[in-house]
Design a protein around this nucleic acid. Structure first.
Length: 865
RNA sequence: GCGGACGUGGCGGAACUGGUAGACGCAAGGGACUUAAAAUCCCUCGCCCGAAAGGGAGUGUGGGUUCGAUUCCCACCGUCCGCACCA
């Protein structure tokens, strides 16, 4: 028996090459076996992979390898989310072209991913920044335009007046541009929009069908779509400027209409704007309100402010009542009609506002007799389960009844030739603005002609490619500055026209890449029947940070592609799993963050202490997400070079439940590596046993080992299906322990030798999805021909999963006192007889009479005294 | 503020549908092997009382349902996450 250590550095490249040469992971579209599409969120090519990638891709790879072994035709591709701002920042800071920077990062990261031994079909690799990808995206955009899913309208953007550029929200820090430090202005630009709101209702209701998505993500999307059912109500105005005889408000609480004590409109509301023309104070108020609207910190501390316009609104149900009309800073023009009626008693914001401006606060919904209308409220009370009071014909009704009664009444009542009230469903979801004033993105294929307006680029002129000769020495969008690129003839009249210089939001790129993977070389965006065959993705795995935008946009995009005829599915991801982050301790020396690679740790447990290599004392800080800024990053390359990819993969799958954060620790990696070495030793022991014929009868030891082996197959199956990798890992440890114990036994009969061989081979197959290189090495050592990656998944023998005797715990009044071993077939009556005679039970009963014996078959016995 | 999740040994965590709480790993302690170390192997390992046998309480806190509750219900405490002047 050899006892050499397993040498990952040597074995891993060897097996990666073997898989490559055998094309083990290349997927054919016309393979007749049932399909399984597993996908991990593709990475942004930032430069190097990080531990989060290792964890994400290790999980997906386990699923892919298990499904492949179970006979599925598995699609498991990889690509690059390659457009985006960091490439432009690199260009500005390091004078490197965004394309070169991106492709060089891709090359590095591809090499790193390959060193992980992932079972990916690299022949399907795509990069979103490649014209061979984005030309199809341009085609999709034009087709969406044809089917009416594209819109062009004005929208507000963050504008940096020094850099002359549009800023993303994350580039605005405390109301200032991140690079220039100048105060950010809000500007209106004409932008392209995708009409995601056309699908608001469908995107909402279809969430119910996504039963393999986390409830949490579905709830987040539901809140994001934000459906509300309410009523539009028209108020007649008195004392308003010409042309404003009425104001329309939106409310979800029409039942509280009799509690209205004011009407408020947004600073951007046409009425406010009009009054401001002749009212300097209001102009100043609106200006002030806009300022507080930009930064999140300001909003949180912002007080509710209002400006009384002097206009009165007539109560629609009681013409004798009139309420003042305010302009208020907490009303949003974008939601509803940009105007509300305020009911201070039942809305906290209205309550605060009314208190400040001394407006009446009248209770109109009471929870019970204690809520006498005359008792002053200390805060608003939503009182959704209450009964209407103080409300004329509504008195005594429940809230839903009152909502309905008000709606009915106002719908029937006419003002001019329209009803006063109209029921309306509202969504918080807004259309998706995709215009970005940037270079490194997919060009929007439109040509602007003075005569013909926005003209689509004809199909035969696609793709509109990005020009290479650009500079970043001027602020603003290089496409806009380019001397020639944007000058083109109008496709309709041929007169000089100009290209759209905006590029698409990078979320567009990632909204359909999963569909492109199904036919990555096709000269159309998707081949319909191929996309229909593979889609939806059976298992999608990625970070929770994409719970809303990426996943919602992809759901929309799939519907849009469906409408444009590219696929007949409408949901892109049947199963979704969101994995936790990789976190690590932080270290500080002399006030500076220190990398774990630069410290020396001494002592253990609570008495641990750390120092830098130069001897400075290191303070051990909190455990946080690995990030460059805190320097608590462990580089996967270092780990793979030191321990091998299998150790890194095994560690990422062990211990922590995959949806939770995992703490990266040195001892954890070493533990994982210990297992890798241990498995190799065990397998060498098994390899010394010649393959055995299956015996007729088995010794007790052999049967016990076989039971463990087959129970482990069942357990690993079940836990991998449920993505509980940490539990599957624990079961594999148990099997290893049982196998090692029997391997060390002195006298082994032939049946035990058979069981050891069976157990060893099974163990190798079961770990193969997690530590694939080690498994190949073991498979080979066991004398197996072919690749374990291509071997059929082991099947648990049903007869070994059940036993003919069973051990039942025996409780007295719910406390365990003893246990008995009986035949599985023992009847409850037989068990009861045995239990009643047990010394331990008689003793524990303490002479009290036995009232009842509860026998739960196969589970437990409880004696009630 | 609204919504959601979670709370189990020194640590990460396991526990099927209400049925033996603490699987498995890490850390720790003891031993074997070794000139020594590493590696490896064996043993112990939630808390309290007890030499042991055994016993007691125990899954954030307090109550409830049940023969039986980590699991279900109510209240509270704590942690984390999402959304937010959304009418």
């Amino acid at each position: 028996m050899t006892t050499e250590r397993y040498d990952a550095r040597n074995a891993e490249p060897k097996w990666q090459k073997a898989w490559d040469e055998a094309a083990t992971f290349t997927t054919k579209n016309d393979d007749p076996r049932p399909k399984y599409y597993v996908l991990e969120m593709f990475p942004y090519p930032s430069g190097r992979i990080h531990m989060g990638h290792v964890r994400n891709y290790a999980m997906g790879d386990v699923v892919a390898r298990v499904k492949r072994a179970k006979g599925f035709n598995v699609l498991h591709p990889m690509g690059w989310d390659a457009f985006g701002l960091p490439a432009e920042n690199a260009a500005m800071e390091r004078k490197v072209h965004p394309r070169e920077w991106t492709y060089s990062n891709i090359a590095t990261m591809r090499g790193q991913l390959k060193s992980m031994g992932l079972s990916l079909d690299w022949s399907r690799e795509i990069a979103t920044c490649d014209p061979s990808y984005y030309r199809h995206q341009q085609k999709l955009f034009l087709d969406f335009l044809k089917v009416g899913l594209v819109d062009r309208k004005k929208s507000k953007v963050n504008w940096d007046p020094v850099d002359n550029t549009v800023l993303a929200n994350e580039q605005v820090i405390d109301g200032h541009g991140w690079r220039s430090g100048a105060p950010v202005e809000i500007r209106e630009l004409t932008q392209w929009f995708l009409k995601i709101t056309d699908f608001s209702e469908d995107l909402l209701t279809a969430l119910d069908g996504l039963d393999r998505w986390p409830d949490k993500v579905r709830l987040m999307q539901k809140n994001w779509i934000g459906k509300s059912e309410g009523l539009l109500v028209r108020f007649v105005l008195e004392g308003a400027p010409d042309g404003f005889s009425e104001v329309e408000v939106y409310t979800t609480r029409p039942d509280t209409l009799f509690g209205a004590s004011f009407v408020a409109v947004a600073p951007d509301h046409p009425i406010a704007q009009d009054v401001a023309k002749s009212d300097k104070k209001l102009t100043a108020f609106i200006e002030e309100a806009r300022k507080t609207g930009t930064s999140a910190a300001a909003i949180e501390t912002a007080e509710k402010h209002g400006y009384d316009t002097g206009i009165s609104a007539v109560h629609p149900l009681d013409p004798s009542r009139k309420v003042p009309v305010f302009v208020a800073n907490f009303i949003l023009m974008d939601y509803g009609t940009g105007a509300i009626f305020g009911c201070p008693a039942h809305d906290q914001r209205d309550f605060e506002f009314a208190t400040k401006y001394h407006l009446p606060i009248t209770r109109v919904v009471a929870n019970g007799p204690e809520d006498h209308p005359q008792v002053p409220l200390l805060e608003a009370d939503s009182a959704e389960d209450g009964t209407l009071v103080n409300s004329d014909f509504l008195n005594g009704l429940s809230v839903p009844e009152a909502k309905n009664a008000v709606a009915k009444k106002l719908e029937a009542k006419n003002l001019g030739n329209r009803p006063v009230g109209k029921r309306q469903v509202n969504y918080r979801l807004r259309d998706w603005g995709i215009s970005r004033q940037r270079y490194w993105g997919c060009p929007i294929p439109i040509i602007h002609c003075e005569e013909h307006g926005a003209v689509p680029v004809p199909d035969d002129q696609l793709p509109v490619t990005l020009p290479d000769d650009i500079t970043f020495d001027r602020p603003g969008n290089p496409l806009d500055h380019h001397p020639t690129w944007k000058n083109v003839p109008c496709p309709i009249c041929g007169k000089p026209a100009r290209r759209e210089t905006d590029t698409m939001d990078t979320f567009v790129d990632s909204s359909w890449y999963f569909a492109r993977f199904t036919a990555p070389d096709a000269d159309v965006p998707t081949i319909r029947n191929v996309a229909d065959h593979w889609m939806p993705v059976d298992q999608y795995i990625g970070g929770i940070e994409h719970a809303i935008l990426h996943l919602l946009y992809s759901r929309f995009f799939t519907r849009a592609m469906n409408k444009a005829g590219y696929t007949s599915v409408s949901e892109p991801f049947a199963g979704l799993f969101t994995q936790g982050m990789v976190v690590h301790e932080t270290y500080k020396a002399n006030g500076e963050w220190v990398s774990p690679a630069d410290i020396v740790m001494t002592g253990e447990g609570a008495s641990r202490s750390a120092a830098t290599k130069s001897g400075a004392i290191v303070e051990i800080g909190s455990i946080e997400k690995m990030s460059k800024s805190k320097k608590n990053v462990v580089d996967p390359d270092d780990i793979i070079a030191h321990y091998g990819a299998d150790t890194a993969r095994w560690f990422m799958l062990s211990d922590s439940p995959p949806e939770r954060d995992v703490i990266w620790t040195e001892s954890g990696v070493e533990g994982a590596n210990r297992f890798v070495q241990r498995l190799w030793r065990i397998v060498q022991g098994v390899a010394d046993i010649a393959p055995q014929p299956k015996p007729e009868t088995f010794s007790d030891a052999a049967t016990a080992l076989r039971r463990t082996t087959h129970q482990t197959i069942a357990a690993v199956d079940e836990n991998v299906e449920g993505l509980r990798f940490n539990v599957a890992v624990a079961k594999l440890y148990e099997l290893s322990n049982a196998l090692a114990t029997q391997l060390a036994a002195k006298d082994k009969d032939a049946s035990l030798l058979f069981a050891l061989r069976e157990s060893g081979e099974t163990l190798v197959q079961l770990v193969a999805p997690m530590t694939p290189h080690l498994a190949e090495e073991c498979w080979h050592a066991l004398g197996k021909t072919g690749l374990v990656a291509e071997a059929e998944w082991p099947k648990a023998e049903g007869s070994l999963l059940v036993s003919d005797t069973i051990t039942l715990p025996v409780q007295v009044n719910g406390k365990k006192r003893d246990e008995i071993t009986v035949a599985v077939t023992a009847t409850p009556a037989e068990i009861e007889t045995i239990v009643r005679k047990l010394d331990s039970i008689v003793r524990a009963s303490d002479g009290k009479p036995v009232k009842k014996v509860i026998v739960v078959p196969q589970r437990i016995v409880n004696v009630v005294v």
